[in-house]
Computed example of a mutant assay.
Amino acid sequence: MKIEPQHVVSLTYNLYVDQDGTENLVEKTTEEQPLTFLYGAGQMLPKFEENLSTLSTGDNFDFKLTAEDAYGIYDEEAVANLPKEMFSGTDLPQIGDVLPLQDNNGNRFRGQVVSVAEDAIIVDLNHPMAGQELHFTGNILNVRPATPEELSHGHAHGPDGHHAH
C-alpha cells in the first residue's frame, strides 16, 4: 500500500550523523520495535515525511536531510542562564544533565546543562542534533489506513492500530 496522509506507517530506520568525516550510527529501530506514526499529522520532520511520500510497503529508503531541514542550524545564542534558586529543594543539575523546561507560552522543550556557575545553571537549548546533517536508511514495513480513533487522537496506536498493554 502506498503512503498517503491519514495512513499509519511502520518502518525501520538507521540514523547516521557525520562526526569528523565518519558516519556514525546514532539511532536505530528494529522490526520488533519499529517507528510507527500517523503520516501527515505533523509528528515527524516535514522533510522526513516528504522523502517517504512516494514509497509503499516493502520499499527501502536512503536519504539525507540538511541541518536546516532537520533540527536547524546550531544557534550560539540559544543558551539560558537559570538562577540556582529555581532548583532549591532539589539536587542541583550536573553538567550533561538534560532538563525538561517550559516557556511562558507552555511550550515544552529540553535543555542540556553545559556549565554550573556560582549563581546560575547554564543550559544549551539547541536540539542535540542541531547543526547536523541526518542520513536515514531503512525499510517501509507496513502502510495501512488509520482507524477513526487514531484520526481523532491525531497519532498512531501501534503497528496494528491498538494500544499496547
Rank of each mutant, 00 (worst) to 15 (best):
E68R: 12
T12S: 11
G138S: 12
F136G: 01
G154L: 07
S10N: 00
H165A: 13
H163F: 10
P148E: 06
H165N: 09
A41Y: 10
D103W: 07
L55E: 08
N24I: 15
L82H: 03
G42Q: 00
T22G: 04
H135V: 05
P100D: 12
N60C: 09
A78Y: 01
N104M: 03
A80Y: 03
V113D: 13
E31W: 05
N24H: 13
Q132D: 05
A164D: 11
P145K: 12
G154Y: 01
N107F: 00
I121W: 12
F37K: 00
H163M: 08
L141F: 01
I122V: 13
R110N: 13
L134S: 04
S152H: 07
P148Q: 10
G106C: 03
A146L: 04
V114T: 11
A67Q: 13
L99W: 13
T12L: 11
G131A: 07
M86S: 09
Q102F: 04
T29S: 15
N51C: 07
L38E: 01
L11K: 00
K64L: 13
D59W: 06
N60T: 14
V26M: 11
D18R: 14
H162T: 15
K2S: 07
E31P: 05
G158A: 06
P159D: 01
Q102K: 12
L11S: 06
V143Y: 04
L45E: 14
S56D: 07
T147P: 06
V17W: 09
V143F: 04
S88L: 11
L99R: 10
Q6M: 08
V114K: 08
T147K: 10
P128M: 14
F109G: 01
Q94R: 11
H165V: 09
K47M: 15
M129N: 08
Y39H: 06
V114Y: 01
A117W: 00
D18H: 14
N24V: 15
A41M: 09
D59S: 15
D124F: 14
G131M: 06
A78F: 05
E85G: 07
G138E: 07
V8L: 13
Q132R: 14
N107R: 03
N105Y: 03
N105R: 01
A80C: 05
N139S: 13
Q102C: 04
T66H: 12
P148S: 08
G42V: 02
Y74F: 14
G40E: 02
N24W: 09
T137K: 12
E133T: 15
E23I: 00
V113Y: 10
T22W: 02
G131K: 14
D20R: 09
L52V: 01
T147Q: 06
A70D: 14
P159E: 12
G158Q: 05
T137C: 03
